[in-house]
Amino acid sequence: MARRQITEYLDIDLDSEMWCCNRCGAELVNARDNYKRGCLVYERDPRTVHNPVIEGEFTRSPHPDYCRIIEFYCPSCGVMVENEYLPPGHPITHDIELDIESLKAKHATAAPAGGDE
């Protein structure tokens, strides 16, 4: 089983070509897809992360009319894999689009132990 850790919370299983949670090992979604499709998603009022220091328009919390926090969780262990601060309605970012063929080729020629775990 050759797993590569791609981010703090995401592995790719090179055999099954799946994104997996690095913390609990759960399979999330196909590695060629946006890993966010394999996560649970929650839209969060920014004031629950950044406490307003004063009432009014400018509070040191992102203003919810202009900014929301979208959180992505592992459905199995609940770790927060990633989050995005977006203006309401802005499309979710496909932030990692790996060339899976190239990744597999790179590790096919590597030492048979494979992976970095």
């Binding site: 959180e71 927060m80 203006p87």
Partner: peptide
């Protein structure tokens, strides 16, 4: 962590509602 699993939804479901939103037009 348990609460996250309870309140989180799939991206597909999320995008249905989300894509209808927008920031204030003036911005």
């Amino acid at each position: 962590r348990e609460d996250r699993k309870r309140r989180g939804i799939s991206l597909e479901e999320f995008e249905k509602e989300w894509s209808r939103k927008s920031p204030p037009q003036a911005s």
